[in-house]
Nucleic acid binder design. Structure first.
Lengths: 158, 158
DNA sequence: ATTAATTCTGAGTGAGTTACTCGGATTAAG
DNA sequence: CTTAATCCGAGTAACTCACTCAGAATTAAT
């Protein structure tokens, strides 16, 4: 029911790749794309978000590329994913700063589902905050691969 | 980033409504629709899933309607939401019976993001399993309302 | 200087999903 | 027989996703 889009999936893979080369050398998108098996031009879009959020730094021109702007152990998955998937709660029910306006139902005094989504959100956020980039690097042996067949969303089964 | 669609949101609201009338009387969709402020014909689709999953029972004809097939305290939100949102993990990375085939990357020996999604899934499932219908009924005072403005997805902010 | 390698940027696109609506068939109560 | 309800399948406008395309800007190496 809940799914991570390829933005999140690919973006995390890019971050893991960059973590492997942290403090070693710059990584170009074509290199990342080949080693991780992901479409370059799509990655350009994703990494722009990561750069805007100051999670990665870039160097332009020949022999340019990207690198993490912080050590992997200081990068939490909550940050990475909220940047990639574009977090924002249009329904103020779930806005983080509770001061925001209420949703349509809430204004009328009874938002029966609010506590449900709130607890779900808490669970998601706290687990993602508890996982840092270096944990993922450690568990994954690095063997460059080719791209699998056409991608789709990754659905999380309940 | 992760969002609950109106299927999940509306479906939960319907279940809460039915829980309020559990063992009292049948509830017709038009009644539910008016009291909860939701489009009838859309609810027809949703409640079909709930019935197929044996979460609710129906009676046809005049004075027909729906009722829960189990007491609210025996209905977990994990059940309700998986029925409504249609759970299935196309990427076997996340299939519940671990015996399934691996995803494209996994076959090649390195699925670096697997442990991340697995931990996220665990968190989501366990929180939803821990919440039963009657909890939501208790916290929400019942005041029939009209439909708010046009609905959209409910996004969960990170 | 020129070329090649790279980041950057904006626009476009085909396929799929979402959130519904429409039209009607079936069933049962009064 | 009429009315109230569940059932069922199809259709649709708007949106999102997962990309691609085309090209401008920047820099290193030759």
């Amino acid at each position: 029911m809940m799914h991570i889009s390829t933005k999140g999936e690919y973006g995390v893979r890019v971050m893991i790749d960059l973590a492997r080369y942290y403090n070693k050398k710059l990584r170009s998108l074509t290199d990342i794309s080949q080693d991780e098996g992901l479409p370059v031009q799509y990655l350009e879009q994703l990494i722009k978000k990561l750069r805007d959020a100051d999670l990665v730094m870039s160097a332009r021109g020949a022999h340019g590329g990207y690198q993490l702007s912080r050590p992997p152990e200081e990068i939490r998955m909550s940050e990475v994913l909220s940047v990639l998937e574009g977090a924002l709660a249009p329904y103020a029910c779930l806005s983080v700063n509770g001061a925001e306006a209420a949703c349509g139902w809430d204004k009328l005094g009874s938002c029966s589902t609010r506590s449900l989504w709130a607890r779900l959100q808490d669970a998601i956020i706290s687990t993602l905050e508890s996982i840092t980039l270096n944990e993922l690097v450690d568990t994954a042996p690095h063997t460059p691969i080719r791209m699998p067949e056409q991608q789709q969303n990754i659905k999380i089964q309940l």
